[in-house]
């Protein structure tokens, strides 16, 4: 299947999902008014991907900001990865946050709790 690459904008995140290596990168800002429009193709891609995922999948999530309507879709992405985990494959979510951004760290813990996926919560230094 094809990889999924979407350039980031001021309102939407950069997506770099590689179907062969199983590395799924989501980064930048996610604050569109119409989240469905942006995320629906992403979820469709993941539906296809989860049926034929490689043995190891790593999601690297490094978001600066996201709005609450994006937060539902981020959970939907993680739910797709849960189906991969249930197929006895390795799944890891790397959740990045800027070191002083306590809220983003806590949000990572919230997603870890709600999704039931293995998380690694990683602090990065500010530029």
């Amino acid at each position: 299947m094809d990889n999924l690459r979407i350039e980031g904008t001021k309102q939407t995140p950069e997506i770099d999902f590689d179907a062969n290596t199983g590395i799924l990168k989501l980064s930048g800002r996610s604050i569109p008014e119409n989240t469905f429009e942006f995320f629906n193709p992403v979820l469709n891609w993941l539906d296809e991907f989860s049926a034929q995922a490689p043995d190891k999948v790593i999601a690297k999530i490094n978001l600066e900001y996201f709005n609450t309507s994006s937060s539902k879709y981020i959970l939907e992405i993680l739910k797709r990865l849960k189906t991969v985990l249930k197929d006895d494959k390795d799944v890891l979510v790397e959740w990045y946050y800027e070191e002083d951004d306590e809220e983003m760290m806590e949000t990572g813990e919230d997603y870890e709790d709600v999704s039931g996926l293995p998380f690694e919560i990683i602090s990065i230094e500010e530029e």
């Binding site: 469905f36 539902k72 879709y73 959970l75 939907e76 809220e103």
Partner: peptide
């Protein structure tokens, strides 16, 4: 608030206008 956020995040279906309930919780948390 954090528990409530997790609960709403998990249970609510996505509405066409986005997660309005989460909005208030998020503003109070942030």
């Amino acid at each position: 608030l954090r528990q409530y956020y997790r609960q709403i995040l998990d249970n609510n279906r996505i509405s066409d206008k986005g997660g309005a309930d989460l909005g208030m919780i998020d503003m109070a948390r942030k």
